[in-house]
Amino acid sequence: MDHLSELESKSIYIIREAYKQFHNIAMLWSIGKDSTTLLWLCRKAFFGKIPFPILHIDTGYKFPEMIKWRDEYAKKWGLNLIVGRNEEAIKAGISPKNKLECCTALKTEALKQTITKHKFKALLLGIRRDEHGIRAKERYFSPRDLEFRWDYKNQPPELWDQYKTKQDDEEHIRVHPMLHWTEIDIWEYIKKEKIPIIPLYFAKDGKRYRSIGCKPCCLPINSKADTIDKIIQELKTTSISERSGRAQDKESAYMMQKLRSLGYM
């Protein structure tokens, strides 16, 4: 088995494990490259028929291209798409002027509302350990309490593919089937599998997005990489980190930690 097949097999095992153990689960789709790859792995795990909903948290600040892309593929792949929005906060006009407040209201709160409404027991997320220091601390199966808090000091042990699969009533579990992938792995796999990816990642007029989220908080990087091969080549030579264009990582050294302990994805 080659390297990419090994990564794939491990992820599929975890996805199937999550569905078997919790049944009432959903996958969080941000329309970015990682969660689109996770979506692809879910399709593979269930032979094209994903038996649970796909959840998109719409902050109202997303790139318009993302919404169009989402709807097109939701239809094409026969997804059960649920869109979660914190309508109250959007109406109140919360804006990225205060980033912690904005992310918390429009992403974290919106997600909490959606989980409560649908009573999901577990959520599949496409985060990776190499993205950010704090994400390296994650488990494959990671419990969160009612308030979404992450007790990273007291995480359950994981060994030999045995995970935290039993839960108390007040817990939900975040499942991270792609924790062991790297940014380059993602692109090489996208290439191998020919996974459709939103064009924002490919260079236009000398700029491309390396990581996407809400439009006001994403800066494109200077790049001529307009094909997957060129992106892979670029990643092999760059010494700038992946999320350097993401405002919420920059605000202060501990912003990401605060966000995550508040339940941010």
Binding site: R129, D130, H132, G133, A136, K137, Q155, H180, Q257
Partner: peptide, 22 residues
């Protein structure tokens, strides 16, 4: 400190959890 990316760890100077890096 590159690995001890959590604030508390930096203050106490110990690694609490397992981190992975490439």
């Amino acid at each position: 400190f590159i690995l001890d990316h959590l604030q508390e760890e930096r203050e106490q100077g110990i690694t609490i959890d397992t981190a992975q890096i490439f």
